[in-house]
Design a protein around this nucleic acid. Structure first.
Length: 490
RNA sequence: GCCAGUGUAGUUCAACGGUUAGAACAAGGGACUCAUAAGCCCUGGACAGAGGUUCGACUCCUCUCACUGGCACCA
């Protein structure tokens, strides 16, 4: 690419930026919500790279736990094969959506993940925050698992219609209670920042009356699909230590090669869903404090994607498969919808009708058509005498755009870009260069140059959002050629 | 149940204690033609309900209704 961007304020020293998504539970294939979170995180990662930072973008899979064991069993599959297949689909989704992850960590990875998890456990233990105690719970023999009181229907397991036994067992607990005050202060002061503010307030409410210690392991005879507790073969780690540790195990924490850990930790941003905000706002920081590690700088809690205003569910028949949509409209079109039509901090809605409407209005008629009309004129009017590569396209990224991006207001940044697109359409209408060219060639070319510059600016701003499309537009400008239609009307 | 939040045109969102409550998409109409029958211009359409505070409320308060989130060792 010959085109260069001037004046975007590249920092002198290369800053690092460590960003993560949640690791996805490999009990099933990915659904629309996974596509949402990955895409949101991807835009932030791409924007940070654009700012000149050295970005480490991590995603991964959470593959342990009783639920996965059951699911595999129900499908008559070996657990390992079962998670392998599902994880493959998550990786496929990332590729299909152009998610620019640098790394993908799996909790079943004994070489990369387990050493980190076990090191972390030992650290917590060294701090005196791990202790053995009795755990009481309702155990359903049919399920071979504990079920929560809330799951009970008339005091019975809803699946087996049997009363569960109240049993006690010994397992390890983590002294979560010890860190409530410290975490509260860090959240309050934004030293550990939770956005949006509504989630921050929720976290503070949860911390309000202190915390109870949490169960951190399970007896191996109840659950053997997980990471073993160090120095106690009778216990397997429960989800907290195992899953949350992915953020540091991926960087080599606790292994011989921890260069990345030294370089990238603490995380600059954990992108997570509202369903797991408690674990990231409270449990994870407590573990880090206990281990003497710095807390992540920020966590971003996003909403969910609904379909027709309701949760997607097979029974309702409103499930939208991300792969189908990508196949039908292309990755950038799906990204467009996820990033603009769904507000990052709130729940958003998607239906095929809405998707198609937004696609036609904004991608085909808006961006695609604008690119075609500008580039057609450019191709025609700037022929041999105007080699495009010598143009000076001095484009600054507007402050408004930067502000929205820095605040993670992705849909507003998109709105801003589309305002530009609309302005350019109006400008063509008002100045009519296609008529002017016959009367005053010089004036027409001047206007056209402005239009191409405007399109260039749009393409640059679009980079983190629609990488493929941005690239196509930049190439078209560089070649001074009207490209193939970017988005065909559907 | 408790705590917090939301409720504005068909849809998604905006705004402010005070001239005719903005925008986008969708709908209807018009002039154009560089373009993907796209774009541009014009038009119709809304403050959940009931009280109250105020000279005046969509904006503040109370109640009602609806929805959402949190208060879970569900991942």
């Amino acid at each position: 690419m010959i085109l260069t961007i001037k004046n975007i304020g590249l920092p002198v020293k290369m800053e690092k930026f460590y960003i993560t998504t949640a690791i996805d539970y490999a009990s099933d294939v990915p659904h629309f919500g996974h596509a949402l979170e990955k895409t949101q995180a991807d835009v932030i990662a791409r924007y940070q790279r654009f700012l000149g930072k050295e970005v480490y973008f991590l995603s991964g899979a959470d593959e342990h736990g009783i639920k996965i064991l059951k699911m595999a069993e129900a499908r008559g599959k070996n657990v390992k094969d079962f998670v392998d297949e599902n994880v493959e689909m998550y990786k496929k989704l990332a590729v299909a959506l152009s998610i620019s992850i640098d790394d993908f960590i799996r909790t079943t990875d004994k070489k990369r993940h387990w050493p980190g998890v076990q090191s972390l456990w030992k650290k917590l233990d060294d701090s005196g925050d791990i202790y053995k105690a009795k755990y009481k719970g309702y155990y359903c023999i049919g399920c071979e698992a504990y079920i929560t009181e809330k799951e009970l229907v008339d005091g019975k397991c809803p699946i087996h219609d049997k009363e569960p036994e109240l049993i006690e067992e010994k397992n390890y607990f983590f002294r979560l209670s010890k860190y409530a005050e410290e975490i509260k202060n860090k959240i309050k002061s934004d030293e550990f920042k939770i956005i949006p503010v509504s989630r921050k307030n929720e976290a503070l409410v949860m911390l309000g009356d202190g915390l109870e210690d949490i169960s951190f392991s399970r007896p191996v005879e109840k659950l053997d699909w997980g990471v073993p507790v160090p120095n106690d073969s009778s216990q397997i780690m429960y989800v907290w230590c195992d899953a949350l540790a992915n953020y540091i195990s991926a960087l080599g924490y606790g292994s011989t090669d921890d260069i990345n850990f030294a370089k990238f930790w603490p995380a600059d941003l954990h992108v997570i869903g509202k369903d797991i905000s408690r674990f990231h706002a409270i449990v994870w920081p407590a573990m880090l404090l206990s281990a003497g590690l710095p807390l992540p700088k920020e966590i971003l809690v996003h909403g969910f994607a609904l379909s027709g205003g309701r949760k997607m569910s097979k029974t309702l028949g409103n499930v939208i498969n991300p792969f189908d949509l990508i196949e039908g409209y292309g990755a950038d079109a799906v990204r467009y919808y996820l990033l603009r039509e769904i507000t990052i901090f709130e729940d958003g809605d998607i239906t095929e009708e809405k998707f198609k409407e937004a696609y036609n209005a904004n991608l085909a008629n808006g961006l695609g058509n604008l690119t075609a009309r500008i580039m057609k004129m450019s191709e025609q009017y700037f022929d041999s005498g105007h080699p495009v590569s010598t143009w000076t396209l001095d484009v600054q990224v507007p402050e408004d755009y930067k502000k929205f991006m820095d605040d993670f207001e992705l849909n507003k940044a998109m709105d801003f870009i589309w305002q530009k697109i609309s302005d350019l359409d109006k400008k063509i209408q008002e100045t009519e260069p296609f008529k002017l060219i016959k009367i005053d060639e010089k004036a027409a070319k001047k206007i056209l140059l402005e239009l191409v510059s405007g399109l260039f600016e749009v393409a640059i701003m679009l980079g983190p959002f629609l990488p493929e499309t941005s690239e196509k537009i930049l190439r078209a400008i560089e070649a001074n050629k009207m490209p193939e239609p970017l988005f065909l009307r559907k």
